[in-house]
């Protein structure tokens, strides 16, 4: 099979301005992936599906990844002018100070597709798509029109991660009920407070159970909690 770089070159040749990026996988598997641009994603996918040499006719897996907002602390050397008294004389001296600066790298949601070719017996080719952010711009184009096997899995990702697949024929929740509002697989999902009975709690669950007890005790009065 072609390497990811060769596939990228083939895509660029077939779809001008596709803007496909190679994401390196430093692990021993070396499964590098291709990051698609949303405006060309369907075109690129169609090329991968129809190309005689690649013939990626089988979509085996679609999954979601949540990348939350990341706060990055950096140490920066800053040069400042400081007024100091040196030997009783006021002087302006340049001083280099190390400062910690924090910046927030915005998070995004990601969809990962694993493609194989049954005809050519090769694969996987890993595709990724990213949303612009995690709150309101969460659309990515659906690949269900090309691979029907994406239909349920994209519905699952819509359900659990809240990624909206434009062009999906039937985008409804699949595991949770229709009136459900949360996306349980997101990192910032908070499960409902039903920790009233946790006989063998530890770690996170123990903390939640203690919080629940404190709340229940405050609400009902002394001795009402466990």
């Amino acid at each position: 099979m072609k390497t990811v770089e060769e596939i990228k070159a083939a895509i660029e040749a077939a779809v001008p301005g596709a803007g496909v990026e190679v994401m390196q996988n430093p692990g021993p598997s070396g499964q590098h992936s291709l990051l698609l641009k949303p405006e060309h994603a369907l075109e690129v996918a169609k090329f991968l599906h129809d190309d005689a040499e690649l013939a990626l006719d089988h979509l085996s897996n679609v999954t979601g990844v949540d990348w939350p907002d990341k706060e990055i602390a950096e140490k920066v050397k800053v040069t400042r002018q400081v007024t100091k008294s040196v030997d009783g004389v006021e002087q302006t001296v340049e001083e280099t100070v190390e400062e910690t600066r924090k910046r927030v790298e915005p998070g995004y949601l990601e969809v990962v597709y694993h493609l194989f070719s049954v005809a050519k017996k090769h694969g996987p080719v890993v595709l990724r798509q990213r949303t612009q952010n995690r709150s309101d711009k969460v659309e990515v184009p659906s690949l269900t029109p090309l691979w029907r096997s994406a239909e349920f899995q994209e519905r699952e990702i819509f359900d659990l991660f809240g990624i909206v697949f434009t062009g999906h024929p039937d985008l409804r929740r699949i595991l949770m009920w229709d009136g459900f509002k949360d996306h349980p697989m997101r990192k910032d999902y908070v499960e409902p407070d039903d920790f009233e009975y946790e006989p063998t709690a530890h770690d996170e669950v123990l903390k939640r159970a203690q919080e629940h007890r404190a709340r229940a005790g405050a609400a009902v009065g002394e001795g009402a909690g466990q």
Binding site: W177, G179, F180
Partner: peptide, 10 residues
């Protein structure tokens, strides 16, 4: 009843 975050009542 299935509600927005959990079953009602729990």
């Amino acid at each position: 009843e299935p509600a927005e975050h959990d079953l009602e009542p729990t």
